[in-house]
Design a protein around this nucleic acid. Structure first.
Lengths: 214, 214
DNA sequence: CGCGGCATCTGACCATTGTCAAGTTCTATC
DNA sequence: GATAGAACTTGACAATGGTCAGATGCCGCG
């Protein structure tokens, strides 16, 4: 959590970039994504106020780099969760693992997660960001596709929306503190189990998806 | 969507409060919650820069008032959706209606929804806000309780988390534009149906909630 | 040992914002 | 129609931030 103010010599030399990203994490945790400013980051990294410009261009560039790092960690957390499964694990278990990995990431990296949700602060056209974000989504999408290979497009989209919304919403409410103390690790596991069961349930006819009349 | 710059006389009298809240909505839509400032609101309402202080105190007060208005509209949207049901509607249909009401609100009031998610910008100790937010949550909670009266605490919490996270996450991803074009009204309806079906499914033993081994 | 180039620093500029104090204009009430 | 009080305006202050230009220090190569 510390920012390594400076090695000893006067220059960071390549390490400045990471030191600035660490500073972003620190500020987001302490005072929220709003409070991030180029100057404050430079202050914490022990460098002068305009030292960040050569590395990131402007504030948006800095935050985009931070969010990209977050997307990479998210994908890694999902892959790690998958890696704990035996090779013979059922598709449902694999889908559940991606969900738990997502939640574990949000829990372990609250600063990254909060900033990744703030799409207004980052540049979503950035190639690096697109690639990282796409990789994380592909993990969920692949796990879902393996669950019921015969799904038609509509059923697949509904289930993707369900899994993604459910897990993301849980993490978002938790990160914002809007959960009223309801969210616990046990609830998280139960939630993932319910989500996977719902995705794995037999597909009903598109014209009456679910037993709920409007 | 317009802010009614000023009636004709020089003073808003009473109407300034609402005009400023309308300005907030306009700014959030155009430039995001960040861009909201007391001065910009005053500018759009056609009044001078410090006219908002007597009404809201400070910036946080203004945003809290806006969020409170949003919570009230959210509860209203859920009640409206419930009101379209026949009196004999099944509990599952009532739960689904609250979900659709929530989504309808977020779709119709994107500015309010976005700001309501930004708990760092509002004062959650505010009595008015607490009451409005509590009312909206009670609608979901009540509909859930009626679904399976015999639920134990754990099952109830998991299902509340599922319903809330699923619907909120869907709306949040949509509002942030992070959905990759996946979200359509049809997907929304399918999602609610899947959520309700999952909540209505028989409750498994707490020690093995779902068929998914870790 | 000298030198080029890059990383970083310093200083300054301009724009924006929240907040305060004091003045001004409108409305309502008598 | 006068007067009191609320609603709003004006002007100014301090703080913060992003950005630019030019100076300065450090590195490795020859």
């Amino acid at each position: 959590m510390s920012v390594t103010p400076k090695p000893e010599g006067r220059h960071h030399h390549g390490a400045l970039r990471q030191a600035l990203l660490d500073a972003v994490a620190e500020i987001v945790l302490e005072r929220g994504p709003e409070a991030v400013s180029l100057r404050e980051c430079a202050r914490r990294a022990g460098v002068s106020h305009s030292a960040a410009a050569p590395h990131f261009g402007d504030k948006r560039g800095l935050l985009t780099a931070f969010a990209t790092e977050g997307e990479a960690r998210l994908a890694q957390a999902m892959e790690d969760a998958l890696a704990t499964l035996p090779a013979t694990a059922a598709p449902a278990a694999r889908l559940a693992a991606t969900g738990r990995g997502y939640i574990a990431f949000a829990r372990a990296n609250p600063a990254h997660f909060r900033l990744m949700c703030r799409t207004d602060l980052i540049d979503r056209e950035d190639p690096g960001w697109c690639e990282a974000a796409g990789r994380a989504f592909a993990l969920l999408s692949d796990a879902m596709a393996a669950l019921q290979p015969g799904m038609d497009a509509r059923a697949r989209r509904a289930r993707l929306a369900l899994a993604w919304s459910g897990v993301h919403g849980f993490c978002a409410l938790r990160a914002e503190g809007s959960d009223g103390g309801l969210w616990t690790p046990q609830v998280a596991d139960d939630l993932v189990a319910l989500l996977v069961a719902a995705c794995a349930a037999p597909i009903r006819t598109p014209s009456a998806e679910g037993p709920v009349p409007s």
